[in-house]
Write a protein that binds this DNA or RNA. Structure first.
Lengths: 358, 358
DNA sequence: ATTGCATGAGAAAACCTTTTCTCACTTGAC
DNA sequence: GTCAAGTGAGAAAAGGTTTTCTCATGCAAT
């Protein structure tokens, strides 16, 4: 101890040390300050703080304590320059409204914040030039990886990410050959919905959904046919409340028995349908059960009655995408392929049959 | 020219050059490769690319051309280490749904992408500990500045940003003493709405709005009183469709003349009101004009009829916040204070009186 | 012929960390 | 009393870029 103190005392005090310690210099506190405050060399300080190298337990503790006291935080730029890790990932999306991106983003951030990783969000609006600019900017900043996400499972982002020298993971958007892609299991989700309707005793289940060229639409319709049979028609349309409204008009104008349940392709359609039913004097859920898809709180929870719906677990999807891109960045092996994540049924009031959980 | 070529030829070829040029090394192309490919020193290459220093025009062109050919892009980490600029800003928000954050983010990104600046998005969910973690992570990454945004003009983020050594700008959230804050001019926006109703001939304008403890609510109600007088009541409630619905019930159950216009505190309330009116057989916009606030497309455009509403120009707000934080980061002086940005009236069908512009 | 100056380009330091290598010193064994 | 091994800590290099300083060359002026 004495020896060390003497050493520290004898160490020539450099001009910049004084300036820094006295707070005269504008910049942040560097490891340099820690070292000179603790009376050790920069190398020793670094090793003490990172729990590497050999040194006396007492020295290590002292350095750590002093670093804490003077509020030292390592400069991530300098660290990244050497380690080739920036502790940064980029999230690329063409989903302007954030309907799908925000939950995915929340999951990514949630999974990565513990690892000290921050997320660049880049909204590219389907503009290839803008997308390229953002990708280049991210690469310049040495992102550890890129996660691509979108508003549609069966469309690519308007930029090629296949030959980057950083790992790329796709979440809720079409990936490339040999990539890792996370998506919701729409078939399973649809089955969940239709089976629930069957469980609560509905037999004449109609399906009102979006445009047939959407992959999700075909998957959901496929599961619907499988579970419900072909007793009721599938009505393809667009993703709007108006279409839900109109589809109900169509169904109820037809001669013959009316459906006793509607499985809707998304919550907006479901909401339009519920409104149309109310206007016709058809009671939801007493006369007809309605179930949506997406669990878009802002629509599902505000509908009267609140919608029972299928949640695609986008946050979990984001979380897994985040952990995967991190694994790749750290060189851990990851099996390429498409991973389907299960959906979850959220029961509210629009189907009846059970008291809501929430 | 000859001399330079000879020099380039004579320059000893270093092992690492060969590896890099041949693509054998994993890393990116550095200025080192550019320099040796062009037969100049690193310093000259740097100066050529940055249009600084003295050198022959021909040398400069050659370096630039070669850099382009081999796809050189400077490492932002290395550059930032020296320049103290990371070309990165952080956006901190507690608005989970992204209703306000996404447009603000779009504006920021839009304004800064031309300057090579990328944006970290950090959603902090009103959790002070999480907020601190994110702020620390951003500071470690040497962000050039932080923009704080939220879901409410009169609330602070649960973290103190007042003594950071990077510039902070507040957008759509309460700032600190001596800071720069951007917010919408809700008073002007409300006046716009009520004056529009007056212009199209409405005289009995009621105001259905959110909780009175919101600053925006009081500002909007103030403007409403100023323009419309006190002939109709102000109904305070919550920000939901249900409340809009219920408020209409209340108004129409009262004895006496009914309002011929409703100025609603947000689009959700407006939507609930429109629904309630339809259910009562009151025609919108023939019998009653309804106007909303927020221009939340997903609500306003899907209402039947689509809502005339007030847009807070959040994207523009984000743009200005972005440019301001950039100015501060570059050391340009910025006057502190609160800047109110004007709102814009978006005319759709729910008021009548004019053919919609869109 | 010498000096002075402008021009073009390179060497080296700086930014902040981490990591490898080296060195001095202590201890235990012979 | 010498040697080997082990221990604690520092010197230096590396990472990619920018910037300042220095140097060499050629030319015009004395």
């Amino acid at each position: 101890m004495t020896i060390r103190l003497v050493k520290a005392f004898l160490k020539p005090i450099q001009k910049e040390d004084v300036l820094n310690i006295s707070g005269g210099k504008r910049g942040r506190i560097t490891i340099h300050e820690v070292a000179s405050a603790a009376g050790v060399s920069i190398s020793t300080a670094s090793k003490a703080l990172n729990d590497t190298g050999r040194m006396g337990a007492e020295t290590r503790e002292r350095v750590k304590r002093i670093a804490g006291e003077i509020g030292y935080r390592p400069n991530a730029l300098a660290r990244g320059l050497l380690s080739k890790r920036s502790f940064t990932v980029g999230l690329l999306t063409n989903d302007t409204y954030g309907r799908f991106t925000l939950p995915v983003m929340a999951g990514i951030s949630d999974a990565l914040v513990d690892h000290g990783v921050s997320v660049f969000l880049c909204a590219i609006e389907d503009d290839p030039a803008l997308a390229q600019i953002h990708v280049d900017a991210m690469l310049d900043k040495q992102v550890d990886g890129i996660i691509a996400t979108g508003k549609r499972l069966d469309r690519r982002l308007p930029v090629d990410l296949s030959n980057l020298h950083v790992p790329v993971v796709y979440a809720f958007t079409e990936g490339t050959q040999n990539s890792v892609t996370f998506r919701s299991d729409d078939e399973q989700g649809a089955r969940l919905a239709v089976e629930w309707l069957a469980t609560i005793g509905r037999r004449r289940i109609a399906h009102i959904t979006g445009p047939e060229d959407f992959f999700s639409v075909r998957e959901r319709a496929g599961a619907y046919h499988q579970v419900a049979g072909h007793r009721e028609p599938v009505l393809y349309g667009v993703w709007s409340e108006n279409w839900g409204h109109e589809a109900v008009e169509q169904l109820w104008e037809r001669p013959g028995e009316k459906p006793d349940a509607l499985f809707c392709g998304n919550d907006q359609i479901a909401r339009g349908a519920v409104d149309a039913l109310r206007e016709r004097g058809v009671k939801v859920p007493q006369d007809v059960s309605v179930i949506g898809f997406d669990n878009w709180e802002i629509v599902a929870a505000q509908t009267r009655p609140p919608l029972t719906t299928v949640d695609m677990e986008l946050k979990e999807l984001g979380r897994q995408a985040g952990l995967t891109v991190l694994a790749l960045a750290e060189g851990r092996p990851v099996e390429p392929g498409v991973r389907k994540l299960p959906c979850r049924l959220v029961v509210r009031r629009s189907c009846g049959g059970r008291t809501p959980e929430e």
